[in-house]
Amino acid sequence: MEIQNLTQRLTERKINPTAMRILVLDQLLHSDVAMSLMDLEIVLDSADRVTIYRTLKKFEEKNLVHTIEDGTGSIKYAICESNCQCTTDFTHAHFHCTTCEQTFCLRNIHLPEIKLPKNFQAEQSSFILKGTCDHCSVK
């Protein structure tokens, strides 16, 4: 994606488009899987871990990414859809491949609305399917 488009995507979410933020956004947009902080550190090998972490937290705060806790002990990050309100909408499922350890957003599997009992407030939701992805199952 062009730098101009990346910059525009950041400014639409009221995020100052620094060089690191543009690099992280570009990596997340070009990834078919959710990425952990460690994954991004490997790809952006000259980048500072703390700066990448702060970038991800800013992206999460501005609903540009959502987090996925897939049971591996490492939080994964994936780009939100343009109309996403991740703090209030728990809209799709995720799939964790137990062979390659990759986690995928299943945007076509929408989660039903869950009616909570009176005075209950959900702060986080997770629906993780585990098994073998299409790439690993054909090996």
Score class of each variant (00 low, 15 high):
1 M>N: 06
5 N>W: 00
5 N>V: 00
7 T>C: 00
8 Q>C: 00
9 R>D: 10
10 L>S: 08
11 T>Q: 12
12 E>T: 03
13 R>D: 07
13 R>E: 09
17 P>L: 09
19 A>G: 07
20 M>A: 09
20 M>T: 13
22 I>M: 09
22 I>D: 02
23 L>S: 15
24 V>F: 11
26 D>W: 04
27 Q>M: 12
27 Q>G: 02
30 H>D: 12
33 V>E: 09
34 A>L: 15
34 A>N: 08
41 E>R: 13
43 V>T: 14
43 V>Q: 10
44 L>P: 03
45 D>L: 03
46 S>A: 05
49 R>G: 00
51 T>N: 15
55 T>D: 07
58 K>H: 04
60 E>D: 13
61 E>H: 11
62 K>T: 12
64 L>K: 07
66 H>V: 06
68 I>Q: 01
69 E>G: 00
70 D>V: 03
72 T>P: 04
72 T>L: 15
73 G>I: 05
73 G>F: 11
73 G>V: 10
75 I>D: 02
77 Y>L: 07
78 A>V: 14
79 I>G: 01
81 E>I: 04
83 N>I: 02
85 Q>V: 11
86 C>L: 03
86 C>V: 06
87 T>N: 10
90 F>H: 09
90 F>A: 10
90 F>P: 03
90 F>W: 12
91 T>W: 13
95 F>E: 00
96 H>W: 04
99 T>A: 04
100 C>L: 05
102 Q>C: 09
103 T>H: 01
107 R>P: 06
108 N>H: 12
110 H>F: 09
112 P>H: 11
114 I>K: 14
114 I>A: 11
116 L>H: 09
118 K>I: 15
118 K>H: 08
118 K>M: 11
118 K>Y: 11
121 Q>G: 00
121 Q>P: 00
121 Q>F: 08
124 Q>D: 06
124 Q>R: 13
124 Q>I: 08
125 S>I: 10
127 F>I: 14
129 L>Y: 11
130 K>L: 04
130 K>N: 10
131 G>M: 05
133 C>P: 07
134 D>P: 13
135 H>Y: 03
138 V>Q: 15
